[in-house]
Design a protein around this nucleic acid. Sequence first.
DNA 1: GCCGATGTTGGCCGTACGGCCAAACCGGAG
DNA 2: CTCCGGTTTGGCCGTACGGCCAACATCGGC
Lengths: 223, 223
Amino acid sequence: MSKVRTARRDDPNDRVLDAAAALFRARGFAATTVREIAAAAGILPGSLHYRFATKESLLIALMERAVDHATAAVRDAVAGCRDPLERLRLGLCAHMRILLSGDDAIYVLLYEWRSLTGGPREDMVRLRDRYEAFWDGLLHRAAGAGCLRDGVDLSLLRLFSFGAINWAAQWYSPEGRRTPDQIADAFWTFAGLGVLSDNARSGNITEIAGSLAAPGALRNEEP
Amino acid sequence: MSKVRTARRDDPNDRVLDAAAALFRARGFAATTVREIAAAAGILPGSLHYRFATKESLLIALMERAVDHATAAVRDAVAGCRDPLERLRLGLCAHMRILLSGDDAIYVLLYEWRSLTGGPREDMVRLRDRYEAFWDGLLHRAAGAGCLRDGVDLSLLRLFSFGAINWAAQWYSPEGRRTPDQIADAFWTFAGLGVLSDNARSGNITEIAGSLAAPGALRNEEP
DNA sequence: GCCGATGTTGGCCGTACGGCCAAACCGGAG
DNA sequence: CTCCGGTTTGGCCGTACGGCCAACATCGGC
C-alpha cells in the first residue's frame, strides 16, 4: 500500500496530471496552455509531449483517473453496510469527501467534459452514466425498503441531489467553518426531513398538494 | 411594450449577444473565436469589433444583461405576494423558468465567470452577490415567519438549493417530459417535506439526530 | 442632392498556441 | 566499457487567434 502511495507520488505521469488538474480547474481547459502545464509539473514542453501526445489525451487520462477514484471510494464506503438507508448516507459522505478533498481532477471531471468531442466525449459520458446508475441502484434499494416517501421520483431526486452536492465544489473552502462531513450531514438532514416547520407543513399542505397537482398554474408575468 | 420587444429583436447588438451566448454555452468562452460569433450573428469580424472592442467586453455585456434579466424576473414574480412562503415558491418558479427558458446567457453567467479576471470579475461577483442576498432576504423572512424548521442553516439551504436548481440547466431538455414549472414544483416538495417516509423518519430519528450532533463521526475508509 | 454620422467591410499584423523532432542524455544490463 | 531503450531537451513550424484599421456604404436631416 505504501508502494501504491509512493508510486502515485513519484510517477512523473501523475505529477503532470495533478498539475494539469489544478490549472484546468483554475483557468479552464481551453485557456490553459501546454507550456503552463509543463512548467507547473517541472518539465519542458517537449517532455510533456512525450508523455501525452495531445492536450486532449491529457484531459481524458485526467478524467478517467478521477472517475475511477470516485467510483472506488464510494463503493468502498458502502461495502461494509447492508442497511439501504445507511448505505445511501455513507455513499453521500464518501462522495462529498472526494469532491472536497482538494482533488482538482474531480472538479474538472464535473465541469470540463464540454471540452471533449466525438468518441472520447461519449466514452466519458458512458463512464459518468455508470457512476450515476450505481447511485440509482442505491436509491432504488432504499425506496424498495420503504425508506422513502411514496411517489418520490428517484431520477429527479438523484438529479437534484447531484446538483446540490456537486455545487459545493464551487463554494467550499478548506478554510471555511464547515468540514465536508458536516456539509454532507447537513444535506442529508435537509433532504431527508425537509426544511418546512410542522406549522407550515400542516398549514399549507393543501396548497402544496395543489401546486403539485396543477404545476405551473401560477403565472404573474405579463399580466 | 411591443416597442421593447421589437427593439430587443432587431437591435444588432442583441443579435450579437444572443449568438455569443449560444456559442459560449456550447463550446465555452475560451474555445469560441470572435470569427465564429460574427458568422453566427451574420456580420463580419470587423463589424463585431466595432460593437464590442474585445471578446471579454462581449462576455461582460452578456452577463450583465443576464443578471439584470434574472433579477427583474424574480422581483416581478414575487412582487404581488405578501406571504413569505409563497414568495419563496414564486421566486423559485421564476428562477427556474428563466434558467430553462433557453436563454443561454443565464447558463453562461453561471458557468463561465471563471473566464473573467481582475476588475470585471469582481464586478460580476458583486452583482451575483446582490442576487444571492435577495434570496437570503426571502429565506430570512420565511424563517422569521416560522415557516422553516428551527435550526435550519439558511446560508447552507440557499447554497444547496442553488446547486440543485442551477444544475437543472445541465440536464434539462425542452423535449423532455417535464416542464420547468413541474421541475420547480418537484424541487419545492422535496425541499419542503423531505424524501424520507414516516417509517424511516421515526425509525431513524435518533440516528439522524446523532449524525447531526456528531457530524463526521463515521469513517470507514482506512480502517 | 449634399453631408456628416453611424455602421460595415475585408483584409492585415503580431503573437502565441499546439504539436513535433533530431539530438543529447542517462542508467542499468551484458 | 559498451551498448541500448527509455526519457529529456530546447527549439522550430504552421496555424489561427484577437485585435485593428483605412476605405467604403448607408441613410436621415437640412
